[in-house]
């Protein structure tokens, strides 16, 4: 059992930040790795990327958006409540080195995943430009943290309610036009964002890494639920990833596989609304 020691609602109550007791994971986890959690006896195993760790207090940061029953249920938990199972750290850590100038792009709750990675790149000596985006101002998360973790933060909203009016790709394009020396782009967010971001950077010939979030079950390479096609080859995101060369990923297949259980997810959510568990 893992006690929740801190809870904060973010982004118009659709995104939630927990600090959770998990001392061994907190000691071991590196940026880019994730955990799988199962809230209770009847719960499903869902992968969540860690938004950070606090080894001295033995906690990990979980930042999640309410997208279905499991995350809706998770949000009903409060400080002092416990999550039954947390498994991790899983996946390969981000390969961090000093490359010079690089751009970290986070969209939606992808910003939470991006945050520890951005911090690590800055600590490794890179000049880090960060772009974060959301549909609207109220959905924007971790602005202060990302400002701290980067040298230069740009903000976009789709509806223009805050920062640049438009998409993260607009801002990225401008940066790539102005600055020839960008060595790496890391993009984490909704699949369409990553897809278009990679289309853009491919034109500029800039290496781009993305972090994928397909459906997983065991997340130890045992089941193959998370298979993604990268460079024409089937990879298991849970053990081969979650980060891949963004120019090689088959995003259309990924989107279809992420939507495999839409009917069941809706039924589950409707039931949750009705009976509250």
């Amino acid at each position: 059992m893992h006690k929740i020691t801190y809870k904060r609602e973010m982004a118009e109550n659709t995104v939630c930040h927990f600090k959770v007791d998990a001392p061994r994971i907190a000691r071991k986890a590196k940026p880019g790795q994730f955990v799988v959690l199962k809230a209770n006896e009847t719960g499903e195993r869902i992968p969540l990327t860690m938004g950070g760790t606090d080894p001295s207090n033995g906690t990990i940061d979980l930042i999640f958006q309410v997208v279905g029953k499991s995350t809706a249920l998770l949000r009903t938990l409060n400080v002092g409540d416990a999550i039954q199972d947390i498994i991790g750290p899983l996946g390969k850590p981000t390969h961090v080195e000093n490359l010079g100038t690089m751009v970290c792009v986070g969209g939606g709750t992808g910003v939470a995943v991006m945050y520890p990675i951005t911090k690590a790149y800055k600590e490794a000596g890179n000049h880090v430009i960060a772009i974060i985006g959301a549909r609207t101002k109220d959905l924007l998360i971790l602005e202060d943290e990302m400002k701290e973790a980067s040298h230069d933060l740009r903000v976009t909203t789709d509806d223009g309610s805050y920062g640049h009016h438009g998409f993260v790709t607009d801002v990225l394009k401008k940066i790539l036009d102005d600055q020839k020396e960008v060595k790496l782009v890391v993009g984490i967010g909704p699949v369409p964002m990553m897809k278009f971001l990679c289309k853009l950077t491919k034109g500029y010939g800039v290496k781009t890494m993305v972090s994928l979030n397909p459906i997983m079950v065991d997340a130890t390479g045992m089941c193959g639920a998370c298979r993604v096609t990268v460079g024409g080859k089937t990879m298991f995101c849970c053990v081969d990833g979650p980060e891949f060369d963004g120019h090689e990923v088959d995003y259309d297949e990924l989107v279809k596989r992420q939507r495999a259980y839409l009917t069941e997810e809706k039924a589950s959510m409707d039931r949750f609304k009705e009976i509250g568990r």
Partner: peptide, 14 residues
């Protein structure tokens, strides 16, 4: 995951 008992258990199965 006891998906055969979905939706009492949360894990779906086709």
């Amino acid at each position: 995951m006891k998906a055969y008992l979905f939706p009492q258990y949360d894990t779906p199965i086709a």
